[in-house]
């Protein structure tokens, strides 16, 4: 039996099952909970039904565009997939930009001492050739 035949979200509107199945698959891959998934798919299929579009290809393209729209307003894909947060990823991303502000007070045994990137840059023999 095809799983589609079972699904509560795909039997209730005249939109092609292929489109609904695609929407379902996308949201499932994002680990979106069942209730949210159902609600999103229903919203999108209703919009599609009101737009009177024809042909699977056109419908599919429109459905995915609507899904992206919904996701950007209602759901953060990263939050959905990794609940530890988008902020964390952004923090990591920002590391790829060198910043002098990232140099802190050193807890060196000899007492606080500032290790700045500038200092390293101006002492060529100590320079770590990297970037």
């Amino acid at each position: 039996m095809h799983p589609f035949e079972h699904h509560p979200t795909v039997d209730s509107s005249p939109i092609s099952p292929k489109v609904k199945l695609r929407l379902e698959a996308y949201l499932k891959a994002l680990h979106v909970p069942f209730e949210t998934r159902t609600s999103l798919v229903t919203q999108i299929t209703s919009t599609l039904a009101s737009e009177h579009r024809k042909g699977d290809a056109e419908l599919l393209e429109r459905a995915m565009a609507l899904l992206q729209q919904q996701i950007s307003t209602q759901l953060d894909p990263l939050e959905a997939a990794y609940p530890f947060g988008k902020q964390r990823c952004h923090q990591v991303r920002s590391w790829s930009t060198p910043s002098i502000h990232r140099d802190h007070m050193s807890p060196h045994d000899g007492g606080p001492k500032v290790f700045t990137r500038l200092r390293l840059l101006f002492s060529p023999e100590r320079l770590w050739h990297s970037h």
Binding site: H104, R117, W128, H129, H131
Partner: peptide, 19 residues
Amino acid sequence: KRKTGNLGDFCRRWGAAYR
């Protein structure tokens, strides 16, 4: 600079934050 460059990059960017 392969591994030394990789570690050097760490030292330069974040090294001062750790003992």
